[in-house]
Design a protein around this nucleic acid. Structure first.
Lengths: 192, 192
DNA sequence: TCACTACGTTAGTGAACACTAACAAAGATA
DNA sequence: TATCTTTGTTAGTGTTCACTAACGTAGTGA
């Protein structure tokens, strides 16, 4: 789908945003970082907006495995644990993601980009909500709490963990800290 | 501390950011929205960065009451409920806040602004962590979960709720939904 | 009355922005 | 060999950016 050069452009764009925010993503900086001229960028993308769209598509592709691995578990609690840890694994392997992926506001000025980003997020939330509801049905997860609140707590704490990791300049191990969070979530939501 | 005109500038800046993101905050747009000329802005702030600093200070001032009301409760669970609901109350009264306050990445390009923003956030987190730990000591809150995880879940779910509210164009009632979340958090963390 | 301060204005600055016109050269195809 | 496509270059476009110089004027206090 994307040529090698296109992938290089997208990955460099993410790197630039991660370093100094969206305002650091200029065609000049992008071309310089790659080592080509500005007009060369336009041989691979028709304009800057297309590059940003490709950035989001890139996230979608990279994050997909985290959702696919859910089905390897049978138990709902294991599925939730897998959901969290697989996401954290991918993010810790691609540290630049952390700075960009949860900052929806970055793309706020372009209607299309927000929609694309929201769609991606909502998809994840719905999958997790299905898992929680199914777990409640099978009496693996406590049923006195709404699945909506549970999903908010699981995803909310995961996102905050990533934000803290990224803002602390990756000072702690994301996956280790994630396992601790998983254990604690597990204790809270398991059915008695 | 801030003159009336300065306050008007800060509030209009927040409005512009909320509408179309940080890239919509230009001196031209700001002056036009207020109804004065661009150079007039510079009679009240020496440059644009000072305006952004004032935006964060504005948040600090507006959010302060949410922390002060904590001491009106004795019970730890009530304190946590108050922490969440007072924050949500202020945000729902100032809807523009929602779009701006949790988008740390917006200010990523200016070292000083990130520090100022992080400091504000960490202060909140520490206060809440103290409340949780004290609640665990008094056996009001279950002690088999680390206070760090609890704080992450409470603040994480609260932030996600605000993000969802803001991204859905305030389609639901933030305070009503917040009360439901509080109830569910309460059930999860109360000591048995 | 006169000077000073506060707060506006118009008209403009250089720098940075996304993007383009025109051309060059290497490799594949006819 | 001749032509076309792909992918790069240099040199530039008009627009927008934050910010400034110079000036006007109403209100205040000596």
């Amino acid at each position: 789908m994307f040529s090698e050069r296109q992938q290089q452009i997208v990955e460099t764009a993410i790197k630039l945003i991660a370093e100094k925010g969206i305002q650091n993503l200029t065609t000049k900086n992008l071309a310089k970082e790659i080592g080509i001229s500005e007009p060369a960028l336009y041989r691979h993308f028709s304009n800057k907006l297309e590059i940003l769209k490709a950035v989001i598509t890139h996230f979608q592709i990279k994050m997909k495995p985290a959702l696919e691995k859910l089905n390897k578990s049978v138990n709902s609690l294991n599925k939730i644990e897998s959901f969290i840890l697989e996401h954290l694994k991918i993010i810790s392997q691609n540290p630049d993601f952390a700075k960009v992926i949860f900052s929806e506001a970055n793309f706020q000025n372009e209607e299309n980009l927000i929609l694309k980003m929201n769609k991606m997020m909502n998809q994840s939330h719905k999958i997790l909500e299905t898992v929680v509801q199914s777990g409640q049905g099978k009496n693996e997860i406590r049923s006195d709490i709404s699945s909506l609140s549970m999903v908010r707590m699981i995803i909310g704490s995961m996102r905050l963990l990533v934000t803290q990791w990224s803002m602390s300049d990756m000072i702690f191990n994301l996956e280790t800290e994630g396992k601790q969070l998983c254990e604690d979530i597990n204790k809270l939501i398991v059915a008695k």
